[in-house]
């Protein structure tokens, strides 16, 4: 099965490993991620002001690019890209908005409709293939961390928005143990890292300690910003809280590669940084 794939800026720079692992692991279970020939920044955050049409254009332009390339489904791996593109899709479902945007962006082809999916959603039908590819069962206890952008607002949720479990199912399929914990869909502090690092450090401490108390040995995420915040802030946490033990953070695709016995070096490296 082939899908249009939107990487976004972070998967080409800071989170290259996330992408590499994804393409490799998905190939094994019969999913081809075909990168768009041309794509732009998604906008990263979806504009919430009612009157702010121009801010929505960036994400819609990407949907049009995918549509022009003949895809009816577009997959994102970065949670933030997924959120922004998917909210744009929801926005364009309203006829009124479609007419308005299409006439506003008259240099582009008209938007007709495309389905935005997150990489995790593709796995819902693939658990048999995932299980049959496992060569090195994970074994450890993992806390699935969804954060915000896969689940909210309700209209874009990839799973039950209050109690998702798709990542837990993946962890179990890969031979790991998925722990249950209350903070799995709480915000990491997001872009506060730029303006209010202290607050994000506090969040990191809170989230990691909660995962640990509930039995986790590592945290799994699909958002490069969650990943960065949880990982990078641990050194600050250590300064504030004596005796704080570091906690490894993984992308879910890295876990797949590890369990599949894939040869992607970077996967191992990633883990090595903290574990």
């Amino acid at each position: 099965m082939e899908y249009g794939y939107y990487p976004g800026c972070t998967l080409k720079t800071h989170a290259k490993d996330f992408e590499k692992a994804a393409i490799e692991a998905y190939k094994k279970i019969g999913i081809e991620l075909k990168e768009l020939d041309k794509w732009y920044c998604c906008g990263t955050v979806y504009s919430l002001a009612k009157d702010n049409i121009i801010y929505k254009v960036a994400s819609i332009r990407n949907l049009i690019k995918a549509q022009q390339q003949g895809f009816d489904k577009l997959v994102a791996l970065c949670s933030m890209c997924y959120n922004t593109l998917r909210q744009a899709q929801e926005f364009m479902k309203e006829e009124e908005n479609r007419v308005r945007i299409n006439s506003f962006m008259d240099e582009e082809a008209k938007y007709e409709g495309i389905e935005v999916l997150h990489g995790l959603e593709l796995l819902k039908e693939k658990f048999d293939e995932i299980k049959s590819n496992v060569e090195k069962p994970l074994g450890k206890k993992y806390a699935a961390y969804y954060g915000c952008t896969l689940l909210r607002p309700k209209s874009i949720a990839i799973d039950a928005y209050e109690k998702p479990n798709i990542m837990e199912k993946l962890i179990e399929a890969l031979g790991g143990i998925a722990i249950e914990w209350p903070l799995k869909n709480e915000c990491c502090g997001s872009y506060n890292i730029i303006t209010n690092r202290e607050a994000v450090v506090e969040r990191t401490y809170h989230i990691i300690e909660n995962a640990r108390r509930n039995g986790a040995e590592a945290i799994v995420t699909s958002c490069p910003l969650c990943y960065f915040n949880l990982k990078d802030c641990q050194k600050d946490v250590k300064k504030h809280y004596a005796g704080f033990d570091e906690m490894p953070i993984y992308y879910f695709t890295e876990l797949m590669c590890m369990a599949f016995g894939s040869k992607i070096d970077k996967c191992e490296d990633n883990k090595g940084e903290l574990a």
Partner: peptide, 23 residues
Amino acid sequence: EVKEEEQEENLPPIALVSALRKF
């Protein structure tokens, strides 16, 4: 101020872009 910090911390682009879009 952010630019300096970015180089230092190797911030992911989404952090920077989202903060700029929001703030």
